[in-house]
Write a protein that binds this DNA or RNA. Structure first.
Lengths: 203, 203, 203, 203
DNA sequence: TATGAATGAGCATTCATTCAT
DNA sequence: AATGAATGAATGCTCATTCAT
């Protein structure tokens, strides 16, 4: 298997490596994961990885980039199909509800670890800021849409509300990161939804 | 032959080491900090550290333990002096306001990194859970106090509200971890306070 | 089924590879040059090279062999056209003069590096000795010719003089290998010529 | 063996490491020598070396620096004791005669390899140039002294003659680097001395 | 108790060579 | 004959921990 391999083959391999690396990074953390761990998990040779990525860090960054963009893009796409602002937020909460605590933990652990890592490297910080800005803008737009349509309070500060929206969601995940049961998490998530809507809806 | 003096000396030294290590861990992260970094920062010999701590990890854990307990104990102490439940929460928000974004970032970075680290070690996870339980209980008690005194909604779920309280606070910090300006942070913190109170107060 | 065409094609390709490899070896040195460097420089695939050479070392040796033999053969050829011994030496010095310092540096660097390399491998050492013997014999023959014709001192030790001839030439190049200007080099080359002739001519 | 070790101990250790490394570099060449080779030869742990040198290259450079300076300094010192210019040169040739071909080969191999290496790194090239300049100046001074005292030809170009002096010496070593017998080498060295003096002495 | 040189397993990365296509 | 992805041993360097002094 080797000469003039198709682009799609390479793309699949790239994706497979990222997936394997993600598994390891999630399990042990970025720094504690050795390239050997990844290679062993993938059942592939060490050198092969370097045909696709220039370094362990490169894998990490590209992985973070892909995950973040996918998330924002998916939401953006889905929101197009939902008419009202309130519905969009409900849709988002529904999504949160469908995601298992386990999945959430993995996502958040990865995301937090990467944030800490990026926070210490000015170049990566920019890239992370950009992503967070996008996620914020996504909600902010909904908030403004809701104000205009009269669904939300007219004196709502859209930006602030967006921050609070993500804050409350990520903060909740943070508190369930170590332990806590699925049922309890889901229950509080429901209350969180109530609180958020109480905060933005008219009256 | 002067155990008391010697003991206090040891205790001071221990604290000094922890402080120096905290500085380094905050700056570069736990894994990226070498014992040499700490030693260089402290102007002390490498071997000396091992007279006070059994390993780098030991320093990390004891440091986390001390920081967390101090935080909970301080709040517990302060709350004793504040009469009403709502006042207690206001007091807490005032504290948040006084803390600079920079300090908050350092604290959160350390805390998050430790949480991730501990989350991967069952033994440490217990210890972290215990701390988070204490922090939660601290607020939960206030929530219940407020319900009893009639300050807060009678149908408030105290536990859930406590989770949301911390979630919203930590989540906000999380979103300002990488960048964002002090003024904006403080403004959103104010809105957060409004949202929280809107959620728990009668009507 | 057209062996002749195919053979010449192969020969050309072989030569092209050697030329590309020479460029890289000269630029970065043998050990520091990777097969990828060569391949990149040539715009050819890695596997292809191994159809013409069995290893990186094989390329190196064949290259050295070719260069050295070419040099000796060329000189041998040219000397046939020059009648007297002294003229032959003058001809050689003229050649040295025409060669730019830059070219000389490249040649010497390659040659020296190969000598060091070969010096550590008994099998290659033999091959290198043989070449050096040929270069020496070339001059030695001239020296003897000059003695017989009466151009040179009759008590001249032909072999010793040949050694000195090459020594002085290579040594000079060695000293200009790192830096030094073309003009100065050429001037000293002139003095070198004077010294050499002063040493071998009658009186 | 470890705490507050004396400076002289450290210096000895440093020297021992350099000596061991020199042995390996001479045997196998700089690039082909692995840190493990050095460590094995020294019977010491790998990490220890990095307490004294920051990298394999650092060892190489410091070694070259020390060797070159020692050589120049020693000669400078010795020349002070010799009255006339011609005597100084004779002294130098006597030194050459005393040095065995084997020693010379080792020295030259090391020196040439380092020159090639340094020639490709602008920063090192400066350092090498400086050394070669010193060696040149050493002889140049003698040449001028000899002209002034009337020992040498008054129309001698001191600088050029110095270049030729070293050229002829290093070139000769170069030609005996691979093979050749001690006796022959010594004989040609004698002829070289004759040639050099014939070139610089009056008449 | 303090010191800091020594240890050596461990790590990310490189690279000559192979071989399926 | 050509391709280039795959291989995996090898390499320079790091670093938590130890221990003789």
């Amino acid at each position: 298997m080797s000469p003039k391999v198709s682009d799609s083959y390479k793309e699949e391999k790239r994706a497979a490596i990222l997936e394997g690396a993600l598994h390891c990074f999630t399990e042990k953390g970025y720094q504690a994961t050795t390239v050997d761990d990844i290679v062993r998990h993938l059942g592939m040779s060490k050198g092969a990885i370097y045909n696709y990525f220039s370094s362990k860090e490169d894998m990490y960054i590209q992985m973070a980039d892909a995950r973040m963009n996918t998330m924002v893009d998916t939401l953006t796409e889905q929101f197009k199909l939902v008419p009202s602002a309130a519905e969009k937020l409900r849709h988002l909460f529904a999504r949160f509800h469908r995601q298992s605590l386990d999945e959430l933990r993995k996502w958040l652990t990865f995301h937090m670890e990467f944030s800490i890592y990026a926070g210490r490297r000015p170049d990566l910080a920019d890239f992370l800021s950009e992503y967070m800005g996008k996620a914020l803008a996504l909600i902010q737009k909904i908030m403004e849409e809701g104000k205009q349509s009269g669904e939300f309070r007219s004196d709502l500060d859209a930006k602030s509300a967006s921050y609070l929206f993500w804050a409350v969601r990520d903060g909740l995940a943070l508190h369930f990161m170590i332990d806590g049961e699925e049922a309890e998490y889901k229950s509080i998530l429901k209350d969180m939804e109530t609180m958020v809507f109480r905060n933005i809806m008219k009256q």
